[in-house]
Design a protein around this nucleic acid. Sequence first.
DNA 1: CCGCAATGTCAACGCTTGGTGACTTGGCGC
DNA 2: GCGCCAAGTCACCAAGCGTTGACATTGCGG
Lengths: 186, 186
Amino acid sequence: MAAPRPRSAAGTRAAILTAARTRFAADGYERTTLRAVAGDVGVDAALVVRYFGTKEALFSAAAEFELRLPDLAGVAPGDVAAALLPRFFAVWEEQGTFLALLRAAATSEAAAAAMREVFVRQVAPALAAVTPDQPARRAALVGSQVLGLAFTRYVLRAAPLAEMSRDELAAAVAPVLAHYLSGPLG
Amino acid sequence: MAAPRPRSAAGTRAAILTAARTRFAADGYERTTLRAVAGDVGVDAALVVRYFGTKEALFSAAAEFELRLPDLAGVAPGDVAAALLPRFFAVWEEQGTFLALLRAAATSEAAAAAMREVFVRQVAPALAAVTPDQPARRAALVGSQVLGLAFTRYVLRAAPLAEMSRDELAAAVAPVLAHYLSGPLG
DNA sequence: CCGCAATGTCAACGCTTGGTGACTTGGCGC
DNA sequence: GCGCCAAGTCACCAAGCGTTGACATTGCGG
């Protein structure tokens, strides 16, 4: 009978994680319920707890934030945007992971801390390879623009930005990133 | 005994609204509880309901989004940032109103809609006075940068941006806003 | 063939939440 | 003085939440 629910897929744990990611990304932390996640997988909520212990632990497990930014050493500031933006779209669109973190960070200090961590450990070092002058400040400004873009486009879905193509967006934003990385800071 | 709780301050309703604004700004929509708001005022939760009917209605009442942007007609794109940034800091720091909306927008479609409304009805028209060329798109880009700044500085409180002075921040961002308003879009 | 660990379900818990309705109390107009 | 309305409290739901522990079922190693 092709084993409709054959018993122990072993991938159940992974399925829960995927479902959790989707839910957290769509609804945020508080509105996401263990029962809903469990329901998506076709499983009891108690099982989710069995696997992950607690809702917060599930969130931590679901939000594994690997940006995997490319190596920017030797890249000219003007070309950084072109090198980075493909990752931008991948990170925000392909998996919901990062969107979940952004949503959760709005109300959860733990999630906000995780986001700061991503910035300090992944974004800032990658950008530091491009500018020797005030790298932290420049990276922060780039980060703020990127976050604002993501928030406007993927969370707010505000009209003009949500409907621009990737290429249009990339073209519009590239000069600004270049300016933050190499222009005067004030 | 100097009437410690004299009975009917008449400003109770206003006090509830203020407390609600603070709570929503600090904790976001879902983590804010009617009981907590009531407790801040020293009042029963039922009274809050009596006054505002429902939690969502309380939120709507608490989030009266008047940006009160200055008239930008005749202002050169290069001077727009200087004209706008004082309002930026006032809106995000002085009252928690807008911060509450930003936090709530991350997980509530209603709040997101309210934020889009603010953009369409207040930000876009104000900026349209500056640029005849693709005003909607330019305004959206400005908005995304401003939102990103607010999110990074006030929600995330990420190190470099949260600690920069208003003047430093203004100086760093001004050229970018000018570019979005008058530079090529790609 | 038997036992056992893994995988999973079920029912229930304690708690908090938004919301309701009956009641009390104070101040003011008449 | 008296009655009445606003302002406020109290006890109480029903629902939903995360979490728990006891129980079923399966596959596998001896």
